[in-house]
């Protein structure tokens, strides 16, 4: 009975192994097929920002998603175009992004309506599909004016486009945010909308810490506008409160590099007290030794005398 059972068990295990053997290569082969046929479509995030200095920044980030997890397309070639003109080919960094800064003096091809069409192209590879992303914007200019009258500070903004002949065309009903540039992000301090002449102003109120001189970077920003994208303009003004960070090192000395003086003094007093006694005792021991040597010498002499006497 027992034998039968174990025999059945063995047969069962062997058949299972054979089955597994048969299935295994087929399974992995089908896996490989899948790999070849299935191409992943990447995500290409493409943004446009006009900087306060007039330059334009184009940034693109390429990534793909597997199992709801995002993986960057590191070190891939990203092509930047404006209309049909190629601006350049950049290699993405480890995070999958690449940034291109266009100097203000660069002439960019516009279409008949004065729109700039920026395109970013990823050519794709064996397993990733080709992707393209584009932004169409018009070149917006923001001019900031700062005034200070009777201790009332105000910021006024002029939003306009440049015409063919260099004439200014005001932009009406443009929502604008006023901000202070901070270490990581911008702190919003007010907003407004431009009038038909393209003007918008705001009173600067409130207390905002600046650097040691009170300088803050005041910024007007058009955010994600359908026509103009992201546009920033700003200037450093002495409108903030001067700050003077108190060094944390004076507050408590326990964690500083050098110990508090009372501690050093106490330690020195205690150590000198104790070690002075040690040295004194060691000196005493050496006195014993000196005396012992004298005695030994005397003994030797007396022995020699004894011998001589004999």
């Amino acid at each position: 009975m027992k034998f039968l059972l174990s025999a059945m068990k063995t047969i069962y295990i062997i058949s299972a192994m054979v089955l597994a053997f048969l299935v295994w290569p087929g399974f992995s082969a089908s896996g490989q097929d899948k790999e070849k046929t299935e191409k992943h479509s990447p995500i290409l995030a493409f943004t446009y920002l006009k900087n306060p200095d007039g330059s334009k920044t184009l940034s693109a980030t390429a990534s793909f998603i597997i199992n709801r997890q995002i993986f960057p397309l590191s070190y891939c070639k990203l092509k930047f175009y404006c209309g049909e003109q190629e601006l350049g080919i950049l290699t993405s960094d480890k995070q999958g992004s690449a940034k291109l800064i266009i100097q203000p003096a660069v002439k960019l091809p516009k279409d008949e309506k004065g729109t700039l069409l920026f395109r970013n192209v990823y050519e794709g590879c064996d397993s990733v599909e080709k992707t393209e992303s584009s932004i169409s914007v018009r070149d917006l200019n923001l001019l900031l004016k700062f005034s200070e009258k009777d201790s009332i500070k105000s910021i006024s903004l002029h939003a306009f486009e440049l015409g063919e002949k260099g004439d200014t065309l005001p932009v009406n009903e443009l929502p604008v945010n006023f901000m202070i540039k901070r270490m990581f992000t911008n702190l919003k301090i007010g907003d407004g909308t431009t009038d038909p002449k393209g003007y918008c102003s705001m009173d600067f109120k409130g207390v905002f810490p600046g650097d040691s001189l009170g300088n803050i970077f005041l910024l007007a920003r058009v955010d994600d506008n359908d026509d103009y994208g992201n546009v920033e303009s700003g200037e450093i003004k002495k409108w903030g409160v001067p700050t003077n960070p108190v060094s944390p090192f004076v507050k408590r000395e326990l964690w500083t590099e050098i110990a508090p003086i009372w501690m050093i003094v106490t330690l020195i007093i205690m150590l000198t007290g104790v070690w002075a006694h040690y040295l004194y005792v060691v000196f005493n021991i050496s006195r014993i030794r000196r005396e012992g040597k004298k005695i030994e010498k005397l003994k030797e002499i007396s022995q020699v005398e004894k011998l001589e006497a004999v």
């Binding site: 021991i285 014993i288 005396e291 012992g292 005695i295």
Partner: peptide, 11 residues
């Protein structure tokens, strides 16, 4: 190690 100690009164 005895350092020449001979049990003299001074030692």
């Amino acid at each position: 190690l005895a350092l020449g100690y001979y049990d003299t009164p001074s030692q």
